[in-house]
């Protein structure tokens, strides 16, 4: 046998072993991939379970039930004062302030920080004076 034939034969053997090794490796990697996919599916299922659980926990009927257990309740009708279009008033005030020359020197607070959602605001009443204790003057 010539030397080159021998070298080729050795190469052939090495290639054959490499093919077997690569095949084996590819199978192992594929199995790993499948395992990770399954894990991904399980995590996605967990996410759904948690979403469903969260939706159950924040459902209004449960929130109200828990609130009643904590002896919380909606303010009595007489403790509610309707504020009217305060947001609009504040918006007008804010735009007026900004249009003034010194507007830049005096920073104007954003309207959102001043105006709470003002559809209905509650106020505790002082039992002696029968007046709201923490309402600003002219709120109504």
């Amino acid at each position: 046998m010539r030397r080159s034939d021998f070298a080729l034969f050795v190469c052939l053997i090495i290639c054959a072993i490499a093919v077997v090794h690569t095949q084996h490796r590819s199978i192992r990697v594929f199995v790993d991939l499948e395992r990770e996919k399954t894990r991904g599916d399980e995590l996605a299922a967990d996410l759904r379970r948690l979403q469903a659980q969260r939706a159950t926990l924040v459902a209004s009927n449960r929130v109200e039930h828990v609130a009643s257990e904590m002896k919380m309740h909606l303010p009595d009708t007489h403790a509610v004062i309707v504020m009217g279009n305060q947001r609009q008033d504040l918006a007008d005030l804010s735009s007026a302030a900004q249009s003034l020359a010194f507007a830049e020197a005096v920073p104007v607070r954003p309207i959102e920080s001043l105006a709470k959602p003002q559809s209905l605001m509650s106020a505790e009443k002082d039992p002696k004076t029968k007046q709201p204790t923490h309402l600003a003057k002219g709120a109504r």
Partner: peptide, 17 residues
């Protein structure tokens, strides 16, 4: 519902009920 949706009162002065 009006309160939840943040809808502006259109008759704040009413001393209803």
């Amino acid at each position: 519902a009006l309160q939840i949706l943040g809808i502006q009162p259109d008759d704040p002065a009413s001393e209803n009920y």
